[in-house]
Design a protein around this nucleic acid. Structure first.
Length: 466
RNA sequence: GGUCCCAUCGUCUAGUGGUUAGGACACCGGCCUUUCACGUCGGUAACAGGGGUUCAAGUCCCCUUGGGAUCACCA
């Protein structure tokens, strides 16, 4: 058996949304796992709705997620002559015919059929009618009227349709352009696609496509239909439920590895494991373990995964990633202030998103903050100025600047004054950060450095004595 | 309406005839603790309903109910 070939075939009419991203991911994973090829194809036969911006957005989304492709992107709009050729072939072999019914006539028939409770399928008027040269026509595929079309779906299991339920679908429009079901078959066949993983909204298209493969003499690929993604109210995921664009999640401070991990676990599982890197997934993923039912997109779990990847992430990389968010907040770490990597390390366990990380980092670079009112009322008590001065004095005398030595300073002050940390810590925290929720006071001092610490303490004392 | 698909905690799921029905998120408590978090320990919480098959059914079959997809000269 030769190599497997899979593809992701989005239509460029919008951004890469989470459902599409998951489909792309599944295809990519299977291709990588089986050492096959992953092909990207842009389904832009609907010229009116397709845009280059959408193509760019989709490529950007895939790249962000780390999904690279081996071939493509191919554009269907480049292949129009090829589709015409195959349509002609079908015509020549009597497997397709020209239909002269107008769209209006068909619409009328559909309506009356529906009204009379019959199936709204094409009645075959032109199926055996003679050619009418010079008249506009569409090309219809002559589908078998009896028999059963069956395939063994990798996800859903055996599925079969009675051919009599299917009608003669249009494969080429009046204007000579091909329609979707026809184009997909030709492309997948000519590109040698062996496995088609796609959304399960295509299940109903599959039997017609199989019939087309057979009529064209192409081998039929294996199909795997992935259930769709729902919103919290169990309706199709849409903007009403929050962001659906993959890139919007980047902008909201999510890490691509969190997105990938979340998406793959939505519908797929591997025992009790929850955390998967792309590398793990290449080993462990299998379409057979994808569930058959639709799943609800759960932002809380995504957030939890994101927090996990921030917590365990490389601080150097996170520092790079957080920089643009800091700039949005008027902070440019390259212009001075504490070292960003050190800052990031103090915030890792406290941030669920890069946005939160950025928010938490601002105070390190902007010392002109207000003091939390309630916190100040409690922490900035009468003894505070003296205690703060003593702390700074002792810090200044330190020969080594480490967490341990800084902590030792506090221990000394507490021992000398006979106080507990609760009488000193909150004041320091507030003086340094302006808030009551911050990284540990020793780590803040460590990162801020002696001079900045002194500056902030003096500013706080001035505030208290005012 | 026709066709097709689906059905285990609120959510994502494990489970492939014999389990105290497991894990994760969320939620609620305890612990840790200088704040906020992290971590950690524990708790609440599910097999849609009804018939079969079987010694035994969440697991197999049928029906019901409930969801969903699709029925274009869109993809």
């Amino acid at each position: 058996m030769s190599e497997v070939r899979l593809r992701f075939a989005p239509s460029p009419t919008g951004y890469l949304h989470v459902g599409g991203a998951r489909t792309a991911l599944f295809n990519w994973l299977l291709a990588r796992k089986q050492h096959g090829k992953f092909i990207l194809r842009i389904e832009d036969t609907d010229v009116a709705r397709s845009t280059q911006e959408s193509v760019d957005a989709i490529l950007q989304g895939m790249t962000w997620l780390g999904l690279d492709w081996d071939e493509g992107p191919f554009y269907q709009s480049d292949n129009f002559p090829l589709y015409k050729e195959y349509a002609q072939k079908l015509l020549d072999s009597g497997k397709a015919y020209k239909c002269y019914c107008t769209a209006e006539e068909l619409e009328a028939k559909r309506e009356s059929a529906l009204k009379e409770g019959r199936k709204p399928k094409y009645d075959g008027t032109c199926r055996n009618a003679p050619d009418r040269p010079g008249q506009p026509f569409v090309i219809r595929f002559k589908a078998p009227e009896e028999g059963t079309t069956t395939w063994n779906d990798l996800i859903k299991g055996p599925i079969s349709f009675e051919n009599q339920e299917l009608d003669d679908l249009i494969i080429q429009r009046t204007d000579g352009t091909p329609t979707y079901n026809f184009v997909v078959v030709i492309d997948d066949a000519t590109m040698g696609i062996t496995t088609v993983i796609r959304g399960d909204d295509h299940v109903n298209n599959t039997p017609r496509q199989i019939l087309l493969y057979e009529a064209l003499g192409f081998p039929v690929p294996v199909f795997a239909h992935v259930p769709m993604i729902l919103g919290a109210d169990k309706t199709r995921l849409s903007k009403r439920h929050g962001a659906t664009s993959v890139m919007a999640y980047r902008d909201m401070g999510f890490l691509p590895e969190a997105m990938v991990n979340y998406l793959v676990r939505l519908g797929w599982s591997f025992g009790d494991e929850e955390i998967f890197s792309l590398e793990d997934l290449i080993q462990k993923f299998s379409v057979e373990n994808v569930g058959r039912s639709a799943g609800v997109f759960n932002p809380d779990k995504l957030l939890w995964l994101n927090a996990h990847y921030i917590k365990t992430g490389d601080p150097v990389r996170l520092a790079e990633l957080v920089t643009p968010f800091l700039k949005e907040r008027g902070v440019d770490p390259s212009q001075g202030g504490p070292e960003l990597v050190a800052v990031v390390k103090t915030l890792l366990e406290r941030a669920k998103t890069m946005l939160e990380l950025a928010d938490g980092a601002v105070f390190y670079y902007k010392g002109d903050f207000e003091y939390d009112e309630k916190g100040a009322a409690k922490a900035f008590h009468a003894e505070a100025p003296a205690l703060l001065r003593l702390v700074v004095e002792k810090l200044a005398g330190l020969s080594s600047w480490t967490m341990e030595s800084i902590e030792a300073v506090f221990a000394e002050v507490m021992a000398e004054k006979g106080i507990k940390l609760g009488q000193l810590g909150p004041a320091v925290r507030l003086a340094l950060s302006g808030t009551t929720a911050s990284p540990g006071i020793y780590e803040m001092i460590l990162v801020l450095g002696l001079e900045e610490t002194r500056k902030r303490v003096e500013r706080a004392i001035a505030f208290m004595e005012k």
